[in-house]
Simulated assay, not measured.
Amino acid sequence: MTGSSAVQHDEVARWTPWHRDAAPNGRSGPVRVYCLPHAGGSASAYLPWARSGEQPGLTIVPVELAGRGTRLAEQPSAVMDEVVDGLLALLASRPADEPFILFGHSMGARIAYETTRRLAAEARPLPLSLVVSGGRAPGTPDVTRLHGLTDDELLERIVGLGGTPAEVLEFADLMQMILPVLRADVTLLGEYNDRVRPTVLPCPVLALGGADDLMAGPEWITGWRSTTAAGFRHRILPGDHFFLHQQRAEVLAELAAQARACLDTADGPQEGRAPGA
């Protein structure tokens, strides 16, 4: 492995620490699903998905953002463009014709949207589909203004909305570990939503939501329809903000169905336009 290849490999490993290719320089058969976490979350949330083998047509790739999980020693980013730049570099390391899906939950939904938008703007290979979960579309009102709250107010508000398990309030060490990441994440979301001027994506969008989600209920999930000029589909499943883990089998089945539908209309992702467009 050359020096530049080693650097690239190390960088990819930082972003996808739980995923290893059998043939890193070759095209894998299954559709890759890059999974982006909720505010304060880490790649480990998707490990049960990656290890389940429930949908052999998918390769689940948990994505680790700075400041959490295996990247705990790094400073978390509070700037959307910094996060997206890293994701674009990660995607550029893959074969251009390899089919993939971008999946994001809550905060991850907006990161996945902005990454897809940048790919389209730069005429780079697009995902077969953007799949968003438990999040409001960019430019729509946030459930509340979070990035101006004190630490105690922030934690109480997030827990009250069902965005973080209430148990974290009982563990001071865990709270101190989560707070810097959580504050960076809500700052990223607030500042991004203040400045974004949403554009229409040229690839399909699947939006998933929980029937009892207090942060992004069913009425907000359908709002993603306006983000695509290609196909749109949505589904509401039982559960709260973290319905995606409560209904893992159903969510993975929806991802697999979306992948099959997109592959049926295209040989693979097209640069700057939707599959089959």
Results as ranks from 00 to 15, higher is better:
8 Q>L: 15
8 Q>N: 10
10 D>C: 15
13 A>D: 14
13 A>I: 08
17 P>Q: 08
18 W>M: 13
18 W>K: 00
19 H>S: 06
20 R>E: 11
21 D>I: 00
22 A>P: 10
25 N>V: 03
26 G>T: 09
33 V>C: 13
34 Y>N: 08
35 C>K: 03
38 H>A: 10
38 H>F: 11
42 S>G: 11
44 S>C: 05
48 P>H: 08
51 R>Q: 15
52 S>I: 06
54 E>Y: 10
54 E>Q: 14
57 G>K: 10
58 L>N: 08
58 L>S: 12
58 L>Y: 02
63 V>Y: 04
65 L>Q: 13
66 A>T: 08
68 R>V: 02
75 Q>K: 12
75 Q>E: 09
79 V>Q: 13
84 V>N: 15
84 V>D: 14
91 L>S: 12
95 P>E: 05
95 P>R: 04
100 F>P: 13
107 M>I: 03
108 G>Q: 06
111 I>T: 06
111 I>W: 00
112 A>C: 11
113 Y>F: 13
115 T>P: 12
115 T>A: 11
120 A>K: 08
120 A>F: 00
121 A>L: 06
121 A>I: 02
123 A>S: 12
123 A>Q: 11
125 P>K: 05
128 L>T: 07
131 V>C: 14
131 V>Q: 04
132 V>D: 06
133 S>W: 06
136 R>F: 10
136 R>Y: 02
137 A>L: 07
138 P>N: 04
141 P>Y: 05
144 T>N: 05
145 R>E: 14
147 H>K: 00
152 D>M: 04
155 L>H: 06
158 I>K: 03
159 V>R: 02
160 G>P: 10
161 L>Q: 13
165 P>F: 02
166 A>W: 08
167 E>Y: 04
169 L>R: 05
170 E>Y: 03
171 F>V: 09
172 A>R: 09
173 D>I: 04
175 M>E: 08
175 M>T: 15
183 R>T: 04
186 V>T: 11
187 T>P: 15
189 L>K: 09
197 R>T: 13
200 V>I: 10
206 L>C: 07
207 A>F: 07
208 L>M: 11
211 A>N: 07
212 D>P: 03
214 L>D: 14
216 A>C: 14
218 P>M: 02
218 P>E: 03
218 P>D: 08
219 E>Y: 03
220 W>H: 15
220 W>M: 12
221 I>H: 08
222 T>V: 08
233 R>A: 15
234 H>M: 09
237 L>H: 05
239 G>T: 01
250 E>R: 13
250 E>G: 00
251 V>R: 10
252 L>H: 05
253 A>S: 14
254 E>Q: 06
259 A>F: 06
260 R>M: 07
261 A>M: 07
264 D>T: 03
265 T>A: 11
266 A>G: 15
266 A>F: 09
268 G>K: 01
270 Q>S: 13
271 E>N: 02
272 G>N: 02
273 R>L: 05
276 G>D: 08
